[in-house]
């Protein structure tokens, strides 16, 4: 048991396992035909990562409890209906998991197209965030095609940037509402300064209740910036000339 934990800890330095490592009895399951052993209570995403599979993910990271909102880590599991999110599905002995299939590729791409329909074109080329990695993983590194039917719809491109904090800024246009910042503030820092306000398409990261980052309970710890997978929360030091949004598409 301890052996498995230590092995995971070693791995963790290099790879984001997707969900926090757990202690537990060894459980063996099949990932894409390869038998993989992980501690009980681990997620299928963690097992798949250890097995060497590349499962795209956005809301999942191994420093935060799983959340299940981004819907790009979907997999197929024998005997289960539909396409369970691998981050929120605990491993079971004998489980047979497929991390890729024609339908999964299509489904993940379909979800990421929705993200892209509300993400600035100008920030796609040359981006280095986890969001950009995910784009490449699903074959959308060029962004949404110019004639894609999702184009021309409602976006958050005109929501103002919050530059109130001296150390970092928040650009809602690049926010994918994965709640990693909210959860980092809660789970890592214990400050509870962030929440999601609004419902549906209006859902947005909000410091306190509609306050600026500086006016909120935020203590500038930076946990949210580190957790953000899409550069919506980003250090100001990266923009010595000041932060300027490119013209919206």
């Amino acid at each position: 048991m301890t052996f498995i934990w230590n092995e995971l800890r070693d791995l963790r330095d290099a790879v984001d396992l997707g969900t926090p490592p757990r202690d537990g009895q060894p459980v063996t399951l099949s990932i894409d035909g390869v038998d993989t052993t992980v501690p009980a209570r681990s997620s299928v995403l963690l097992a798949a990562t250890i097995a060497g599979a590349t499962v795209p993910k956005l809301c999942a990271t191994d420093t935060l409890e799983c959340f299940g909102s981004c819907r790009v880590c979907l997999v197929e599991i024998d005997g289960r209906r539909g396409y369970p999110a691998s981050c929120t599905t605990p491993v079971e002995s004998g489980m047979v998991v497929r991390t890729t299939s024609e339908q999964l590729v299509k489904l993940r791409r379909g979800v990421v197209e929705l993200y892209l329909s509300d993400y600035p074109d100008s920030d796609i080329d040359g981006g280095w965030s986890q969001f950009h990695t995910t784009l490449a993983q699903v074959g959308l590194e060029e962004g949404l095609p110019a004639d894609h039917p999702y184009r021309g719809g409602d976006t958050h491109a005109d929501v103002p940037v919050d530059e109130s904090n001296p150390y970092f800024l928040f650009d809602p246009a690049k926010c994918i509402v994965c709640s990693r910042c909210v959860r980092a503030c809660e789970e890592i820092q214990g400050t509870f300064a962030l929440t999601i306000a609004g419902r549906g398409f209006s859902s947005q990261v909000s410091p306190s209740q509609g306050e600026s980052f500086l006016a909120s309970e935020c203590v500038s710890c930076g946990a949210c910036v580190q957790a953000c997978p899409s550069d919506a929360l980003i250090e100001k030091s990266l923009f010595p000339e000041g932060y300027h949004r490119a013209d919206p598409r």
Binding site: C70, R71, L114, I176, V177, R199, G200, F201, S203
Partner: peptide, 11 residues
């Protein structure tokens, strides 16, 4: 009525 959590429903 979407709670805004998952992206298929939210967007």
């Amino acid at each position: 009525e979407s709670c805004g959590k998952c992206t298929p429903c939210r967007v």
